[in-house]
Design a binder for these strands. Structure first.
Lengths: 334, 334
DNA sequence: GTGAAAGCGCTAACAA
DNA sequence: TTGTTAGCGCTTTCAC
């Protein structure tokens, strides 16, 4: 491995010229450039990013914070980010918050210490204190939020239209002739879950149909206790014939619960989830769901950030993606 | 945000003394130390890791390469690594190979450019050219492999005893009175899959039981074509009563296939997977499997690496973990 | 126990 | 188009 110095010595050029070849090579004659590039190859030149970062003030590192990496949605986003970032010269470093505000702060701090140039982040379910945003603001590190965004103005973000997702899922159940709907809702403090619930309610209202019953139950943790409550609900109310779960995982739990109770899906009850997790294709019946195009979300978020990195004075932008209904067996007409 | 300079100015101390407080604080009087620490807090001091890295030659970064991050096993390993690394002052940066040799090389190269101090890596299924190891060897960056290791001596690694895992899974089927066993095998070029197959064969041999039939079928891709072959096999050979799948995912496919064919699991056929993926608890029936204690594997690998980072002349070490049989409904006696 | 000063490898003015 | 030089923020010898 060699540095810029060795190349300068071998080629008889100055450090500056060699450096220029690897940066703004336009100011260098093609001949010189070629000579340098050849030497670089021969000597196995590897630029010292640390030195460059120190001098230029640019670390070429983008920090990404997701709640959990082992998750179809977030790993899809990461893949999208990788796709955009990889041929831009930036490196990405991923941290998980594990849905904990404290871990989120730790990650943020180590990003600032590492002098990342930009941050991509989806806030944890637990996060209620948004003062960290001020700190980031002071540090001038641009940040783009995706999917789960803070309830504040002036931020850049890429989100899904979760309201629309909830609306579509519910409309689908209504279209399949369900008359007694249940929404299993997530923590309403998380905006996306609140939006899904709103979509659920509106879809029923706007359907204009009479005689539709609906109710919601909030189920934030998927503990045994939670599931028991749900079980009791199913037992006590056998009229329920359409369920919209706020997430695929809880949807899977519901599916299993219904099987335990010998309630046929989709014969007796139709079920739709949210997220298009990979396992929804593998259950029996396959679970209908709402797709979030996670890769695209990652690509857009990364694109937004890189734009901002180039043009400091860029105004905050908010992109909203449209969800897609995925019809599968769990809502099929029998 | 402030640097070492501001602190020196405020406290009236020299840069050197301030620096010492944050490094080998033993050489500094408690009073001075306290003064510096207070100033650091007041000024929101954030060390510039780049500068420190440049000067000391130590980047405080550990690079991690996994095939895929959206995977119960690997994300568990990452959590284990995080646990150990977090309070050691190192930062981790994760790259995915997506099971591609080329991507693996790209990641490795950018790690070397970033001057990571150490590498933790599980090689991709596709990797057959191990010359990259030489390159890493030259760069003197220590590397510890986990789970999927290169077929070479002189490397440090943490692996699972996959042979034992295959043995235990198969023995479990035999204990449940299966007499006509099928092993769905993974790509034999990947050592862990070869070992599982060996365990399968040996368990049958060593059982000493007569009249046990066994066969294997290799199914590396989980394409529709693959599954069709499997389906034909089940149809043509209705005697099969015990299946050991080399992974949980293919196990789930098998489970669904059997349901499609109206073959009862575990009534008619018993099924066991490998990996203890999270969805194995959520299927119906729940799938028996082999647990790999992924978090522990990550912890051990990270521990090994950090030891090596401290003591350059450490000999290569190879730790082998024992798998654990997880009995669930898919192999239950009816 | 503390300070002065050199320099890690590179970039970016400025000069030629 | 190329070279000279200062210095990014920190660590680390060597001196006191």
């Amino acid at each position: 491995m060699a540095g810029i110095k060795e190349i300068a010595k071998i080629t008889g050029l100055s450090l500056a010229t060699v450096s220029r070849v690897f940066n703004d090579s336009s100011l260098v004659s093609p001949k010189t450039k070629e000579k340098v590039l050849k030497a670089a190859k021969d000597l196995d030149y590897r630029p010292n990013i640390m030195a460059a970062a120190l001098r230029s003030g640019k670390s070429k590192i983008i920090g990404v914070i997701v709640p959990e990496v082992n998750n179809y949605f977030f790993s899809g986003i990461i893949n999208g980010i990788e796709k955009i970032v990889s041929d831009s010269g930036y490196n990405i470093i991923i941290s998980q918050s594990h849905e904990l505000q404290e871990r989120e702060n730790v990650a943020l701090n180590s990003f600032l210490k590492l002098h990342v140039e930009g941050i991509l982040m989806s806030i944890s379910k637990e996060t209620s204190d948004f003062s960290f945003i001020e700190k980031i603001g002071e540090s001038k590190v641009p940040i783009v939020y995706f999917d789960r965004v803070p309830p504040l103005d002036g931020t850049s973000s890429v989100t899904l239209n979760d309201y629309m997702g909830g609306f579509m899922a519910t409309k689908h159940l209504l279209d399949k002739n369900c008359k007694n709907l249940l929404h299993i809702a997530g923590n309403p403090r998380v905006s996306i879950f609140k939006e899904r619930l709103k979509g659920f309610k509106d879809a029923i209202l706007k359907s204009g149909r009479k005689g539709i019953l609906s109710r919601e139950i909030e189920l934030t943790a998927h503990t045994k206790k939670d599931l028991k409550i749900l079980k009791e609900l199913f037992k006590s109310d056998p009229k329920i014939d359409g369920i919209f779960a706020y997430g695929d995982e809880i949807g899977l739990h519901v599916l299993n619960l219904l099987k335990d109770l010998d309630i046929d899906v989709p014969g007796k009850v139709k079920l739709i989830g949210f997220g298009n997790a990979d396992f929804t294709k593998l259950t029996q019946p396959k679970i209908s769901t709402i797709d979030q195009e996670c890769s695209q979300m990652g690509e857009l978020a990364a694109g937004l950030l890189i734009e901002k990195l180039k043009e400091v004075e860029l105004k905050p932008q908010n992109k909203v993606l449209l969800p897609k209904l995925i019809k599968r067996d769990s809502t099929m007409i029998q």
